[in-house]
Design a protein around this nucleic acid. Sequence first.
DNA 1: CATGAATGAGAGTTCATTCAT
DNA 2: GATGAATGAACTCTCATTCAT
Lengths: 213, 213, 213, 213
Amino acid sequence: MADTRRQLVLDAARSAFFELGMEKASIREIAQRAGYTPGAIYSYFASKEAVYGALLGESLDRLVEAVQQQAQAHTPGAPRLHAAARAFFDFYRDNPRDLDLGFYLFQGMKPRGLTPELNEALNARLLESLQPCQTELEGLGMPAAQALQEVTALFAHAVGVLVLSHTGRIRLFRQASDELFQRYLEQLVARTPAASTPPPPQSAKPAAKVSRK
Amino acid sequence: MADTRRQLVLDAARSAFFELGMEKASIREIAQRAGYTPGAIYSYFASKEAVYGALLGESLDRLVEAVQQQAQAHTPGAPRLHAAARAFFDFYRDNPRDLDLGFYLFQGMKPRGLTPELNEALNARLLESLQPCQTELEGLGMPAAQALQEVTALFAHAVGVLVLSHTGRIRLFRQASDELFQRYLEQLVARTPAASTPPPPQSAKPAAKVSRK
Amino acid sequence: MADTRRQLVLDAARSAFFELGMEKASIREIAQRAGYTPGAIYSYFASKEAVYGALLGESLDRLVEAVQQQAQAHTPGAPRLHAAARAFFDFYRDNPRDLDLGFYLFQGMKPRGLTPELNEALNARLLESLQPCQTELEGLGMPAAQALQEVTALFAHAVGVLVLSHTGRIRLFRQASDELFQRYLEQLVARTPAASTPPPPQSAKPAAKVSRK
Amino acid sequence: MADTRRQLVLDAARSAFFELGMEKASIREIAQRAGYTPGAIYSYFASKEAVYGALLGESLDRLVEAVQQQAQAHTPGAPRLHAAARAFFDFYRDNPRDLDLGFYLFQGMKPRGLTPELNEALNARLLESLQPCQTELEGLGMPAAQALQEVTALFAHAVGVLVLSHTGRIRLFRQASDELFQRYLEQLVARTPAASTPPPPQSAKPAAKVSRK
DNA sequence: CATGAATGAGAGTTCATTCAT
DNA sequence: GATGAATGAACTCTCATTCAT
């Protein structure tokens, strides 16, 4: 019951943020959309920043789910790597406000909203979203350390292309972001040992997890 | 004379922004640092957003100069490509506030600050900063169209790594941004036809310019 | 049973007030410390001001007890006068928040919290706390009317020194509050007729009570 | 010109505070009385607390002046001591809100409004208001150290009686504050060596100043 | 008796911007 | 060109209190 109403606030916050952007999505605006008075918001969240922390948490949940769903829908090996990486990219391409959310969190948030615990949880979800790529790269015979490097580079490339696309700067170069990312993916696979050879029999030992140790 | 004073305001704005960040660099603060009262700023700039537009223009000027200086200091071919690309990357790595400036422009700015004319000028400078890379890739035998693709990807990759680094997210992966970008550069050179072979005699025909036509 | 719970709330209120001061000791805070929700407080008290009224009642109870205990522990006459007066002074010196409580009542409270009945009860307790001083002064041969004057002055002096001490203003004068009050006491005794002569045989007629008639 | 308007704000603040008390004298209320919008107040004062700091400063100025004026109107010695001490007492008896002002400052103010410099200045004024009493006591042959003790005690007594009077508690004792304070003064003079004898010829050496060294 | 949810009023403060002088 | 004063709208957040359940 309380969760339902908290969700109501969160939905209002998301809609406000998606329509108006960060600057205009004030507590007043959120409250109004939720059918509340401003003070009521503080029954559910300790501060405005906390609202955005929760919003980002949701966003990352959706991301993780999108990636895992796509990964499971494909066979292991290069196809599944493609699927996972593209799912990550497509998620933000199709939901650019979720990208904004992530940027905002790490730029403007005050310590109160982004507690160490929340930060930890958000980081964990981010790593989780990239875990399928790591797993597949290792499944293709890439050593764990190198796979981690490649995943990081993949993440960076995706973010870069998305930012260019989101800010419209990519038009300067008359390039399409999809193709750009696609080409990067193909180059990555080309660099991967077993990618062009038939995949080895399913390894009994599970791939090393992406983790901060 | 008027230009001198406008520059004074701009210097004050830069120092305010670099020290205090976007949120705290108010018109009041800028005026005070320039030795003016708030109203006076509006003699030189139409709005706060216009100030930041001008600030970004300056920033891109410095970027272009940094890249060209590094490019000229090296021999043509792969070494010069490296130099130009790294100069681009290092500029933002060493001056993260300039990166913020670029992001801010495309996220928070009202139309009033980013007029089409200014936008045009800013775009032109951005392309100019990447022109040396384009030139070198073509010098290494890469067709102009493909070189443009690669420059775009290079730009995207740099931005992605910089964002990861700037937001601290790269620590999650225990990776160093310099190495990450360096590796990308090496892969790019490896993909380039004449890069490992001795450079062909200086082409009489100048490389196609990066442009929006 | 209901009294027990009311006492629970009162204990929570006292701890909140003593730790956080008047401004920060909100109904929310009190409720939380009592293990209740804010609304529940209103089952026991009509308003926040009423809580503080009750708190002050308790405080005065403790004061009366402290004074009486000290007075009984000494022989009648000047020593017992000293003991009673000092007990009054020391109570507030050692518990400055109780002093705040008294001030708050007469400065910020709305009529609702300080009903005439409560006011009556609080006044009665205050007079009770000073009764031992009155009794002793009369025991020393001072006429009742004059003793009342002296008790009033003693009360005023104690309050004055306490306020100076509590607000730190006494430091301006490089004086110690204890000595200041002690000197006043000694002067009072010196003014009292029989104070230096042996006390007369215990009067059969009890001393006139401090009262508002 | 700016000073005139600052004074306007200060007058509005004083009237708001005197009529409504501290709690209800909000920035909005002050601004309205001054004919301003709330934001305009911050052109003159850094914070609400700063307004009250200035208000107290004014109050102490009036106090100092009242005391000095009364002192100069009387002959030196016991009469002038009486005059100065009574002027101090009467000032707060007749302007009880000024007493509130002083209490508020040292109880609730945040550091921002009560800077060390302001605190210093306020303390200096307070000492200044008591200086005439110190001077007269020394003129009556009292050693400087003892005179300081007596001035402190006098100050404390005055404050105590004023508080009792202001909070109405004095009625409990059916005493009049004026008489109470008057009697204290007479006792003080009686304790003073040369007070009943004709005053000595004007001392060439000026009396030691009340100071914190 | 107690909850939990919500209100409504108000708090202090900030800031880009305007405009008469 | 520059000032200085002021606006007006917004901001986040706090809190005593109410009331249906």
